[in-house]
Amino acid sequence: MFNLFKKSKDHIADIETNSNTIALKVEKGKTLLNAALSSGIAWPHKCKVGSCGTCKSQVLLGDIKAQIDFGYVLSQEEIEAGYVLACQSELKSDIKVKIKLIE
């Protein structure tokens, strides 16, 4: 039964920040925001449950698995432009993502 929960491989997020690009390993089952915070990256966040929109970032390449419907917080245009909520996103592939970090 526990095979259902078997871990598959981790993915890499190339994070384009205001000043540089950081390569971040995101373990299976971990959100992009949590992976960033545990690596000491100052990713903006507030609620961590997908309701405030503070962790919003733009995925330029690759796929994420949304844990909740982003439509309540992000506009249709933002979703179409690849914006995601990092606190509710796991990686389905390696990605390239753009974020303005807290300075």
Partner: peptide, 10 residues
């Protein structure tokens, strides 16, 4: 379920 996440937590 919706009110708790999008209202109460915020």
């Amino acid at each position: 379920t919706y009110a708790h996440v999008y209202n109460h937590h915020l």
